[in-house]
Write a protein that binds this DNA or RNA. Structure first.
Lengths: 120, 120
DNA sequence: CTGCATCCATTCGGATACTG
DNA sequence: CAGTATCCGAATGGATGCAG
């Protein structure tokens, strides 16, 4: 697995495209603590439009990351829960999150320095 | 670090946007084995346009992930090398890559099943 | 060889309005 | 409450031509 065949690279790129979009991670993080309803997620993930939430949830459901459960009541309730696969992704991403949190300051500093240098 | 403050989430999202774009990871992987020249990278990362390579390298340089060394010769040669920060990112992403490689098949299967279900 | 500028097609993401 | 459909602006990414 130290080698990196082209096929794996494409797969990784595809996963990263999914995961790296604007909302996926935030939604996953919101759900991971337990099941949540549509507007519950919307409240928790501040700034997301309801359409983006719909799209993101659908994509995650399609990938088997979240499970969608409809409770036929009035008003209708829909619960979203992270599947084992979703939790698995969440754990993996958390490591990247830790890295990001740990290096975010350095990176911002680098950017600032770079921009200052360009201005000269 | 088990808690997830909003600030960290934003930072992670920003990092993921960087890393999750179409080419960054592939370029990083290409360079990690050793320093490479511009067209060397272009050859290795198949399908990348030269402008996307320019943009990606610049972004990485700005973030302090790669170092750019110009050898003033004729014709000019420019070497790109991964910095320690870049290697650090590379290692972290490799874990995500392993996850992706390990679950890619399952995810594709899930998608196929979902699509079939929708068609009914 | 390396890199920048321009143009253009496609995609992404947000706001809004409407349905069950 | 949950979800769909439409419109539109912004951003992404590719092709090409030009310059150092």
């Amino acid at each position: 697995m130290t080698a990196k065949p082209a096929a794996a690279c494409r797969g990784v790129s595809e996963i990263l495209s999914r995961v790296g979009d604007k909302w996926t991670i935030l939604v996953v993080v919101a759900i991971q603590s337990g099941s949540l309803r549509f507007n519950g997620i919307k409240r928790q993930v501040h700034g997301i439009s309801q359409q983006m939430l719909t799209r993101t949830l659908k994509a995650l459901e399609r990938d088997g990351m979240v499970e969608r459960t409809v409770h036929p009541s009035t008003p209708p309730q829909v619960e979203y829960t992270l599947t084992p696969l979703g939790h698995s992704l969440s754990d993996t991403v958390r490591k990247l999150a830790d890295w990001a949190a740990g290096h975010h300051g350095v990176i911002e500093d680098n950017r600032h320095r770079y921009d200052a240098q360009q201005a000269r």
